[in-house]
Amino acid sequence: MDMIRRTVLKSAGATGVVAGLLATGMLKPTLAYADDWNKAAFEAKNMDGALDGIGAKGAADNKDLLVKAPEIAENGAVVPVDVTSNIPNTTSIAFLIAKNPSPLAAQFEFSNGAVADVSVRLKFAETSIVRVVAKADGKFYSAQREVKVTAGGCGG
């Protein structure tokens, strides 16, 4: 329990949120589970920081990592992105959106027969590259796509 408390205290920082957390009963043991969340990577404000956070700096481009995303998205709030990794022994896939305030959107790990094939729907703050990073045999590989986000009906 002490460990959890410390994590919460640390993450709440100097903002004085702690009292609020206590009041709402959030300091429950269930938070231990949320310790698995890679806070540093998710809160990184740029692509390099986020890549660093997941240990994927210098990921090499790879054609066997297939990314499917719309070229133009009318609604940046819901952009479907499908990824299939044909790189053998792919164990994780991460999604990063370059121009978002925090690029890292999601990371999935596969085990026990899960196929390295994921589809998600992501938010794009503006027209941006979505970068997908796969981990296979301890190495990182990447692929990317640009999605143009049109505001209203007049973009293009």
Partner: peptide, 25 residues
């Protein structure tokens, strides 16, 4: 048995939809 473990941020769309594939089921 856990097959997929995901960490996600607020930049995943509202009411998230995910698609996964699992072999051996």
């Amino acid at each position: 048995k856990t097959v997929i473990a995901g960490q996600i941020a607020g930049s995943v769309s509202k009411n998230p939809v995910f698609g996964f594939k699992v072999k051996g089921a």
